[in-house]
């Protein structure tokens, strides 16, 4: 198991390094270097040279990548040339808002999606099962930003139940929760559908297996079989998908933060792109990609802990 964890973690690190290298190469493969793009068409050659030196763009490419990794490892993501402050500082400042939003979105999706899937699997072909099936697909089909816009229209603008703007920083934790409801609803709704379908399908599969029949023959109570023997195995695919779900939510979060004017990584990169603020963009993409890889790695390891068969696969 330890071997698996080490190998899986190493793979995660390799993936992050490759991703960063790819991103770095891409920035340099396109015509027009970042310094020129940032300064605009009226920049003088001297200005561009000065900016390149400041961003370390005057050195050979492999050197740049190596020194970039070196700096990243020491927690230095470069300097935001517009705000004149370290990129890492800016990112750390807004990161909690995004993490809270992702956690809230995933939590309510799990709290609703998993029981819905369990109910559907234990009552197959009931009207509730059918309704859950159709609405699951509908939830999955609605992109988070459309959900966010509709929620804004209905609950904030028309009904006025929830605040439209901001993260509620100044209102204490109840105010912050109040501000969190609609964005979390928007990023989580699709995952209610995903999880419900996933849990239903895998529970039906496990219910048909021999060990369940065996447990029944031994006269174990229905609920014991259901929760101790079936759900424990049937929940595995859902555990794996949470890692991917967090990555997908990092995309949805961008929209939720912009629609509801919340601070966070999404809002940060949105503004950075408008300013063509390359160090900030690189930093944000790096941090979100790392978060994503950590999430998938953790869920793989968790999965291997729960299901010994997986360990031999890597």
């Amino acid at each position: 198991m330890i071997l698996y964890m080490v190998k899986r973690t190493a793979l995660g690190i390799v993936i992050i390094m490759l991703a960063v290298t790819l991103l770095y190469l891409m920035i340099h493969a396109v015509p027009g270097d970042p310094a020129t793009v940032m300064l605009g068409p009226r920049a003088t050659p001297e200005l561009i040279a000065a900016m390149e030196q400041r961003m370390g763009l005057d050195k050979p490419l492999p050197m740049q990548i190596v020194s970039f990794f070196g700096r990243v490892l020491s927690g230095d993501l470069g300097v935001d040339v517009f705000a004149e402050r370290p990129v890492a500082e800016t990112i750390v400042g807004v990161l909690p808002y995004t993490l809270v939003l992702v956690a809230a979105g995933m939590s309510w999706a799990l709290l609703l999606g998993v029981p819905l899937g369990v109910y559907s699997a234990t009552h197959p072909d009931s009207w509730m099962d059918k309704a859950a099936g159709v609405s699951s697909v509908a939830f999955i089909a609605m992109p988070p930003f459309v959900v966010g816009l509709y929620a804004l229209l209905l609950f904030a603008v028309t009904l006025g139940w929830f605040p439209v703007i901001g993260g509620g920083q100044e209102k204490g934790w109840i105010g912050q929760l109040h501000h969190l409801v609609l964005p979390a609803f928007a990023v989580g709704l699709g995952w209610v559908g995903y999880l419900a379908r996933l849990v239903r399908a895998s529970m039906l599969e496990v219910l048909a297996e021999n060990h369940v029949r065996h447990a029944r023959a031994h006269g174990l109570p229905h609920n014991v079989i259901l929760y101790r023997y079936v759900l424990r195995i049937a929940i595995l695919p859902a555990v794996t998908i949470i890692g991917i779900g967090i990555g997908a939510m990092l995309s949805g979060v961008v929209f939720a933060e912009i629609i509801f004017a919340r601070p966070g990584l999404g809002k940060l990169i949105f503004v950075a792109v408008q300013q063509r603020n390359f160090p900030l963009i690189m930093g944000t993409v790096l941090v979100t990609t790392t978060l994503f890889v950590i999430a998938t790695t953790l869920s793989d390891i968790l999965n291997a802990l729960l299901d010994p068969r997986i360990r031999s696969r890597l």
Binding site: A248, S251, T288
Partner: peptide, 21 residues
Amino acid sequence: LLFDTLRSFPVVMFALAVVTL
């Protein structure tokens, strides 16, 4: 490994970086 790497970018973040370029 290439497939895994390409999938590790959050779509919108990656898209925004490309758009800037």
